[in-house]
């Protein structure tokens, strides 16, 4: 990765940080609406244990949610791509996962699964599974016709065509779906935690009730870092598999 890819996005972040620090410390914006960035870091240093614990809880729940999304989503995509009939029957239900308002479903999850990790993992899964299914199905269904002809001529079975052609050819799109799901898994977990009352979501909710905007911002900052970590991990995995190169070898 080129240094510019890391450096350039940091420039607007640094400018916004400096600007907000100046606006708040000079009294242009009241502290109860927007805390100074330096104050957010101070809050993190004052009470690191509760933030670390919340961060780890959210990381665990969203990590499990993402793993579930990847495994279930990919498995469903393989089934959906295997037969037109199955796709016609089941794909509308896959779209259901995208359209479902998670904030409305989360209370139901608490009733079904209780106040704890399963609810948060389920929330993370529901929000993040659709991109995995959609990207994987798109990738699996867009194999080059000439290569499909080649496999037909080589008398390949449908399973051989799926696992030796369609799946490897679809990996770039599949990994793209994983990267989108990574960010959504964190969002889904935070929403679940709002209701279930744990992790960074629970911390945000509790801090909001106490009018502690500084603690809310500290939790939001950690949630964003978690999302970036997930995204970066999957981007690295994509590179490791060799499916992010510019030379065309990834298609």
């Amino acid at each position: 990765m080129k240094a510019g890819a890391i450096l350039f996005p940091l420039i607007p972040l640094a400018l916004i940080t400096i600007l907000s620090e100046g606006l708040v410390t000079n009294g242009f914006i009241p502290k109860y609406l927007l805390p100074a960035p330096s104050h957010v870091f101070l809050v993190l240093r004052e009470d690191p244990s509760s933030f670390i614990q919340a961060f780890l809880e959210t990381a665990k729940a969203s990590g499990l949610g993402l793993l579930l999304s990847i495994s279930v989503g990919l498995f469903l995509a393989l089934i959906l791509s295997f037969s037109t009939l199955i796709r016609k029957m089941l794909y509308p239900y896959a779209i259901f996962f995208q359209t479902v308002p998670i904030i409305a479903i989360a209370p139901l999850l608490v009733i079904w699964l209780g106040y704890g990790l399963p609810t948060v993992v389920a929330s993370s899964f529901i929000v993040s599974v659709f991109p995995v299914i959609a990207s994987s199905v798109t990738g699996l269904m867009s194999t080059e016709p000439i290569l499909l002809d080649l496999f037909r001529l080589m008398d390949a079975s449908r399973l051989q065509t799926l696992f030796k052609l369609r799946l490897p050819a679809a990996l770039p799109q599949i990994f793209s779906g994983f990267r989108i799901a990574a960010g959504l898994a964190v969002i889904g977990a935070i929403v679940g935690e709002f209701i279930a009352g744990s992790g960074l979501g629970g911390l945000v909710d509790a801090s909001r009730n106490q009018q502690r905007v500084d603690r809310v911002f500290a939790a939001v900052l950690l949630a964003a870092i978690l999302g970036i970590l997930f995204f970066a991990t999957l981007a690295l995995l994509t590179r490791w598999f060799g499916y992010g190169r510019k030379d065309g070898s990834n298609v």
Binding site: I146, D149, L150, D155, A169, L171, S249, N250
Partner: peptide, 17 residues
Amino acid sequence: RRDRIGFVFQDAALLPW
């Protein structure tokens, strides 16, 4: 037989991976 027919396409049709 189908598996004794060779087909060579214009763009070589190799699997890039």
